[in-house]
């Protein structure tokens, strides 16, 4: 196989990785609807990318986005403006600090110290990747779905768990993941709010 074929294959693999990641996020939307969760940003994927010539491979913002984030809250809580915790999902394709990390699906429950005044503006897409890769650091993270807990200086408590993206093979795994998220969300509710 010549170098062109290698590059074509690499690019197609990435395109398909992204396509399937988006399908996963769409399905999570649908599955979470069953439990009255509503995405905070409609159809938009949360990500950071750069079109600057001065970007670096190790920076947070690169031409190819490093993650796709979605955040959810209960529909009633959004309506009544009393969101105190959110369900935060992140598909992390890579991270600038690390050369070899697997693409992962990270799910989390974030308990907020206050009711955000403006959900869309106050909740940042980079929160979860910052917690996992920059605060806790990937080498310290419990993997394969084990729960991790982190409280930052401002009192934001994050319970998160990671699974290799390639460990998801269909609807069954996604459905299990959503049930786990809802269970942990409800449990966190009892303890925190």
């Amino acid at each position: 196989m010549d170098d062109n074929s290698n590059l074509i294959q690499s690019i197609n693999n990435v395109r398909n990785l992204i396509h399937n990641s988006i399908l996963i996020l769409r399905d999570l939307d649908t599955l979470l609807s069953k439990y009255s969760f509503q995405p905070l940003n409609g159809n938009a994927l949360g990500s950071e990318s750069s079109k600057s010539l001065y970007q670096s491979m190790t920076g947070y913002r690169t031409f190819l986005p490093q993650y796709m984030a979605r955040q959810y809250a209960l529909e009633n809580d959004i309506e009544e403006r009393k969101v105190k915790k959110i369900l935060f999902t992140n598909i992390q394709l890579f991270h600038g600090y690390y050369d070899e990390i697997p693409p992962v699906l990270i799910n989390s429950i974030i308990s907020l110290p206050n009711h955000p005044k403006n959900l869309k503006n106050d909740i940042q897409n980079w929160w979860l990747k910052n917690t996992v890769y920059e605060d806790v650091k990937w080498e310290n993270v419990k993997k394969h779905g084990e729960l991790n807990e982190h409280v930052d200086d401002e009192g934001y408590k994050t319970i998160f768990w990671c699974n290799d993206l390639l460990s998801f093979q269909g609807q069954k795994e996604l459905s299990n993941e959503v049930e786990k998220s809802v269970q942990i969300y409800n449990r966190t509710n009892d303890q925190q709010v």
Binding site: H19, L23, D27, F168, G170, Q171
Partner: peptide, 15 residues
């Protein structure tokens, strides 16, 4: 819907 990474038909030979 998502149906697993193994089902990416366009990249079967590559995957």
């Amino acid at each position: 819907s998502f149906n697993g990474f193994h089902n990416m038909q366009h990249v079967y030979p590559y995957v």
